[in-house]
Structure formats: C-alpha cells, structure tokens
Amino acid sequence: MRKTTRRTPATVLTYLVVGVAAVLFLAPFYFMLRAALMTGTQVTDPDWHWLPDPFTLRGFTDLFDDPSVPMAGALGNSFVIAIVTAPVSTLLGSMSGYALARISVPGRGVVMSFIVVTLMIPTSATFVPTFVLVSAMGGVDTLWGVIVPGLFNAFSVLLFRNFYLKFPQEIEEAGRLDGLGHLGVYWRLALPNSGALLASLGTLSFIESWNAFLWPLVIGQDPESWTAQIALSTFLTSQSINLPALFAGAVVTILPLVVVFLFAQRHIVQGIAATGMKD
C-alpha cells in the first residue's frame, strides 16, 4: 500500500522538476539559433517572434565576409591548437605516469613530489610569469606560445600513474620474455592497453583547449593569432554589432564541440568522473 501512495506523486513531481530544469538548460541554445537565423531588424523587434520569419543565413555569410572579425582563420587556429594539445598532453601524462608507476629507480619519489606539488599552484599565480617567460622566448602572437605551456599536466600524470599501478604484471612479464625493455613494454603493451583513459582525458583536453580564454587572450595580441574564443570576444565588444552575425559566430564556435560531445559523451562522462575525484 505504501508503495503505490508514495511513488506516484513523487515520480510525477520528479519528472516535472527535471523536465522544467532541462528546458531551462537547453533554452539558451534555442535563443542563440533563433537570433543567428533572423534578420538584424527582427532580432531587436520588441514583439516576440518564436521562429525566424523569414529564415535567413545572412548572419553566417556576413560573419565570414566581415574583414574586422577573422573568424575563419581563428577557427583554424583553435583547431590546430586543440588537435595538437589533446594528444600530446595526454601522451606526456601517460609516459610519466607509467614511469612513476612501473619503473623502480632511485629518486622516483622525488620526481613524483616535484610533479604533484604543482597541482597546488593555481593558474592565477602563474599566468603573469608564464607570459613573461613565453614572451622572452619569442612566443607572443605564435601558436606554439599558446600551445606549449598547456602541454604539461600533473593531474593527468597522477591519473595515469594510478591506472598503470593496476596494469597486470603478467603482461609486463610476457613482454620482458620477448626481449622488450622498459620503453618497449610501455610503447608496445602498456600504451595500447590504455585506450579508455587516453580517450577520456584526450577528449576533455580537446574541449578545454578549444574553450580556453585567458591564456590565448594574453598571448595572442595580433588578430592573425586569435583563437575562435578571442575573435568572438572581440566581436562582442566591437563598435557596431551585426547581431545575427554575432550569434552565427557563437554557433560556429560551439559546433565542433557539439560534434565531439555527441560522439564521445561516454568518454566525457568517464573523464569527468575520473578527474573530479582527485582523492
């Protein structure tokens, strides 16, 4: 008896609350698309229009025709940065993680502490001096200046170390019998068997570097080296705004990530669950 009286209203209420929340969470995407597909005058019309009337792609063509907003080049820069950062930073994390977990040498604990201590340093403490360093090395307005400081991630080292601690001893021994050294075991056996973690951390790293704002803003002062986020941010604060083109810019900036998200959602969820739980 208790079951029926308790479950039905509570379940209805649950779905109602979650449903309303979901509408609120997805509504901003609708407002963005709506404005991107409208004419400039309709966007600012005080009378509400649920759908663009007429539908127009003018916003998108205006966006890529506007010489003051180098959106195409900026998207290209963002793509290069993310496509280099994601695999390289993940691979470097995996290499160090493997060495710390499986290669016993004197001084290993010192190297471990050296890496882990950097987790306690917030970004706020490093962005000014890192700018100073990178500019001294001639990295201002270059893509490598945006990429290189972001390649070293103590946190992914730690996650890979925990992962390789559980890597089966038998596989390592089999490799040894076949004459592989430490590097061979890592490259031929351990790395190919870390697919899930590589995919999770790689996907998160791709999203993170695509969305990064502060560091690319600091280092990319010339429009040639802008990322999509910087170009969009500049567009947002420019003198005369073509609203449909601005929202079209938001759409094209989000689009690659929506694609990544739809194809790699499982990796993203696992990655968040893995990275969130530091302890």
Binding site: P28, M32, W210, N211, I241, L246, F247, A250, L257
Partner: peptide, 22 residues
C-alpha cells in the same frame, strides 16, 4: 545529456548569449 551539454560551451559563448539575448 541535456544537463551536461552546456558544460561543453565556452564562457565567451555563454556570456554572449546572456549579454546579447537573455
């Protein structure tokens, strides 16, 4: 999925939608 999708959006895009639309 519905609640997680916004997590893939950048602060720039979100600020743009909030400032120019909402």
């Amino acid at each position: 999925t519905g609640f997680l999708i916004p997590a893939a959006v950048s602060y720039v895009v979100a600020a743009l939608i909030w400032k120019m639309s909402l």
